[in-house]
Design a protein around this nucleic acid. Structure first.
Length: 128
DNA sequence: TTGTTGACCTCTT
DNA sequence: CAAGAGGCCAACA
């Protein structure tokens, strides 16, 4: 039997922005990440309904630096909790420093207790 | 304008 | 269990 396909999650964004591009939503979700919390590209992608487009989430982050208000890209890491995009920050240690300021422990460029600090938009934002 | 790359994730062999 | 390929959308050359 084929594996059950996950239903497409509908983006529960506030103001119904018609021209909400993929990355626009990513920016919004990323900005909604509470302090001291972290999320993964896949979580955001899944929240938007397309978990396969996780790559775009990271790409959107690239634009996040230019986006305003600034998007806390440092709170977004890969599925392994590793600071994959730290190298893209102003400095490769900037992301880690920012996370440490958020009381988030980071070791070996990996977030400690990632699951504990994990913030799932598909759930948190679904609570309304 | 077309082709390739990119801060990833999931499935298949 | 491990490794490889596929797939999404957008920007850059």
């Amino acid at each position: 039997m084929k594996k059950p396909k996950p239903e497409k999650l509908k983006p529960i964004l506030p103001s119904g922005r018609k021209d909400s591009s993929f990355f626009e939503q990513v920016h919004d979700v990323a900005r909604q990440i509470p302090k001291g919390r972290v999320t993964s590209y896949g979580a955001i992608a899944a929240y938007l309904g397309t978990k396969m487009s996780a790559r775009m989430v990271g790409w959107a982050m690239n634009s996040s630096f230019h986006a305003k208000p600034a998007v806390p890209a440092h709170r977004v890491v890969n599925r392994n909790g590793m600071l994959s995009g730290k190298m893209h920050f102003a400095t490769p240690t900037r992301m880690e420093e920012l996370l440490k300021k958020e009381k988030i422990k980071v070791a070996e460029d990996i977030i400690v207790d990632f699951e504990q600090k994990f913030w799932d938009p598909a759930i948190e934002l679904s609570i309304d």
